[in-house]
Every structure is written in C-alpha cells, then in structure tokens.
C-alpha cells in the first residue's frame, strides 16, 4: 500500500518523465559526467601514477607542474601533487558522501517525526532545528573540532551535525502537507502503526525533495570539509584532503602558486558538478525549493 498503488500508473510515468527531463538538462548531465569521472579517477587513478602520494623526497621539492613526470608538480616535502590530489579527492569525497548520508538520515528522521506527530513534539524538534541554524556553521564546526579529536570519522560526524537542519525542514514541510492525504488516512484506518505510515507510506512520497537536498548537501559537505581542513582542524596530514593541501599553500603563494591553485580548482569543479546535478534533479523531480 504505497502511493503508487493509491494512484495507479503514476509511479512509472513520473519516473520516465523525470529521467527524460534530467537527460535534457545539459548542465546536470555535465555535472553528472564530471562527478563520475572525478570519482573514478580519484579511486582508481592512483594505481596508474608513477609516484606515491605519501613518499617524501626533499631533493625534488617545489618542482613546477609538467616537469620530470610530476604532472601537477611537487609540494614543499617533494611529494607528488597529482598523486596527492587524487588520494585527497577520495578522502574528501568519502567524507562528504558519508557526512551527507548521516545528515540526510538524521534530518529525515527528525523531519518525519516532527511533521507527522506535530504538536509539542514537532514544536520542540523544529525549534531545535532553528537553534542549530542560528550558529554560523563554521563556528559550530570549529568549536566541535577543537573539543573533539579530529579523526576522519569525527570530522565526518561533525560536518553531518551541522548539515541536517535544512533536510529536516524540507521533510517536515513535505510530511505536514502529506499527513492529511487520503492514502495516509486509509493507512490509519487499516490500523497501520505510526512507524509504518511514516516510513512506508509518507517517506516514499517525499523522496524527490530529499534526493535534491542530498545532492546539495554533498556539495556543502565538500566545501565545509575544505574549510575546516584548510584552517587545520579537519583531516590531519599526512592523510591528504583537498582542504588541507591548501593549508600550507598561502606562505608559498609567490614562489609556488600551483600548490594553491590546483587543489582549489579540484574543489570548485567537484562542488559545481554537484550543484549542477542538484539543479537538474530539482527540475526533473518538480521540486520547489526556495533556497535557490
């Protein structure tokens, strides 16, 4: 007894149209292609590169790009930037993706309960959302990072903690509008449990906005990881991330600008791609979003 059954035939038609619309969205396709390429390169590429991302060789430090088989040059410790960039990419993408999963799960759970139960439970939950939103995310992130040990797992959790509120708001609004619909009333009349109605009846109908929010949350998480790692409180060296590769770059800006330019470009390309895909999905899934 899902919405598909309640509105026969709607599921397949909706899916086809969404796929077609997404495929017609040139920027979204571009973004999707970039993300695929980036992911494949970051996770498989290191096996094809001649240099190890962690191997220190002070005799070749500050090699400019395209010299001696160092495609992107070397860093102040003589490590190959191309190799580091790919390894950093896999770390950053993994952190961002895991943080997104946690944010979406937490946000969806809070939004579902707040929207479905309403009343004082909903009020308390949604005011908590407002409370978290009042903190500028980087202040919250850094205060937490300073208090907790910044292992990759902890960094992921911290980013997730600052990123679930938008999702909760979106889901709550969606659930509130679905709560009184016939298929939900029918479920209630059949004596289905609250959990069943929330997760099996309402949630599938709120998936569109959640998927869009998930895509944009990955973009946000990549940026936030970059911010805190750049500031020295995120992923800790020697493990590279796009953010911490930029960390020491400012002091060498005059002599070795590629240290700063290359990882920054990688971040921008990755985040732009996710934003493009999110935009395409929003059009394809007919999601009205006031954020942008």
């Amino acid at each position: 007894m899902t919405a598909v059954a309640a509105n026969p035939g709607q599921g397949r038609w909706w899916r086809n149209r969404a796929v077609r619309r997404f495929a017609n969205h040139r920027l979204a396709l571009l973004g999707f292609t970039m993300i695929s390429l980036l992911t494949i390169t970051c996770f498989i590429g290191p096996y094809f590169l001649p240099h190890d991302p962690l191997y220190i060789d002070l005799s070749v430090r500050f090699t400019p790009p395209l010299v001696d088989g160092y495609y992107f040059g070397t860093d102040p410790l003589g490590r190959d930037i191309a190799a580091r960039l790919l390894m950093a990419g896999s770390v950053s993408l993994l952190v961002a993706f895991s943080a997104m999963l946690m944010s979406i799960m937490l946000g969806t759970l809070v939004g579902l309960i707040a929207g479905y139960r309403g009343g004082w439970v909903g009020a308390v939950l949604m005011r908590t959302v407002d409370g978290f939103l009042a903190f500028p995310s980087i202040f919250l992130l850094l205060a937490l990072a300073a208090a907790l040990k910044p292992t990759p797992m902890m960094v992921t959790i911290i980013i997730a903690i600052t990123g679930w509120m938008e999702v909760a708001r979106i889901v709550e609004a969606e659930v509130r509008s679905l709560r009184e619909r016939e298929f939900v009333q029918a479920g209630r009349m059949l004596g289905l449990s609250g959990a069943h109605i929330m997760f099996r009846e309402i949630l599938p109908n709120a998936m569109g906005p959640i998927i869009v929010a998930a895509t944009l949350t990955v973009a946000r998480a990549i940026l936030l990881e970059a911010y805190i790692s750049f500031l020295g409180y995120g992923i800790q060296p020697p493990l590279p991330s796009w953010g911490n590769m930029l960390g020491g770059a400012q002091q060498y800006l005059a002599s070795a600008p590629w240290l700063a330019i290359i990882p920054g470009l990688a971040i921008t390309i990755a985040v732009t791609s996710f934003n493009f895909v999110g935009d395409g999905l929003r059009d394809a899934l007919d999601v009205r979003d006031d954020r942008l």
């Binding site: 940026l223 970059a226 750049f230 930029l246 700063a260 921008t268």
Partner: peptide, 9 residues
C-alpha cells in the same frame, strides 16, 4: 561552489 579562501588566495 568556489571555496571563499581559495578565491582569496
């Protein structure tokens, strides 16, 4: 999508 600090650099 541009990280603020990178734009600054």
């Amino acid at each position: 999508s541009i990280p603020t600090f990178w734009f600054g650099l």
